[in-house]
Amino acid sequence: MSVSIDITGLTPERIHVVPSPLAELGMALHALSEPGHHPGLQGWATAVSARLDPCLADRMCEADFLWRTTFSDVFAPFAGIPGKSELPGATLAEELDQLDKLTDQQFVDAALEFTCQLGYDTQRETDPLSDPETRRHALELAAARGDHQVRFTMRLLDDPPAVRAWFRQLLEDCDEAFFADTWSRVSHQLAADARHKTELLRRKGLKEALQAISGAVSLDEQASRITIDKMAVGHTRTGEGGLVLVPTSLGWPHLMVLHRYGWQSSITYPVNSPGLAAPASVEQLTRRMAALSHPVRMRLCRHLARGSYTTGELADAHGMTAPEISRHLSVLKKAELITTRRRGRYVQHQLDLGVVSRLGSEFIEGVLR
Rank of each mutant, 00 (worst) to 15 (best):
P132T: 02
I5L: 11
T103E: 12
H30T: 10
T91W: 09
E13H: 11
L118M: 11
D104A: 09
I5F: 04
E34W: 04
M60W: 01
T91P: 09
Q106I: 01
L29V: 04
F114M: 15
L41R: 04
T8D: 13
R14T: 10
A45M: 01
P132F: 08
D97Q: 15
R135H: 08
H37A: 13
Q98A: 05
G43H: 14
C61Y: 03
A93S: 14
L56D: 03
P19Y: 04
Y120H: 15
L52T: 05
S49R: 15
L66I: 01
K101L: 14
H37R: 15
G26K: 11
T11E: 15
H30F: 10
Q106H: 04
L102V: 00
L52N: 01
G26I: 05
F75P: 00
A143W: 00
P19S: 10
V17D: 07
A57S: 13
R14A: 13
D64M: 04
D131S: 07
E13W: 10
W67A: 08
T126H: 08
H30V: 06
L139P: 12
C116F: 02
S72I: 04
R136H: 09
Q42G: 09
G119S: 04
G40F: 07
W67Y: 15
T46F: 03
L139T: 05
D100I: 10
E62M: 11
D131M: 06
A138T: 06
V17H: 11
R136M: 09
R59S: 11
E133I: 08
A93L: 07
E125F: 04
D121S: 14
P19F: 08
R136V: 00
E140F: 13
L118S: 02
A143L: 02
E95N: 07
P21H: 07
T70E: 08
I81F: 05
F75R: 00
L25Q: 15
L52Q: 00
E24R: 11
A76H: 03
Q106W: 02
E140T: 14
V74S: 01
L56M: 12
L52G: 03
A31W: 00
Q117I: 03
H137M: 13
T103R: 13
R135N: 06
C116E: 02
E94Q: 14
C61I: 01
S33R: 15
V17F: 02
C55I: 11
R68H: 14
V74C: 08
Q117E: 04
E94K: 13
A93K: 11
F71G: 05
L66C: 06
D109C: 09
L112H: 01
L41P: 09
E13L: 10
D109E: 12
L139D: 09
L41A: 08
E34C: 10
A31K: 09
E24N: 10
T115E: 03
E94A: 15
C61M: 06
E133G: 06
L32F: 06
V74R: 06
L118W: 01
L25Y: 02
D64L: 07
K84C: 14
H137R: 14
A143N: 03
T91I: 04
L102M: 07
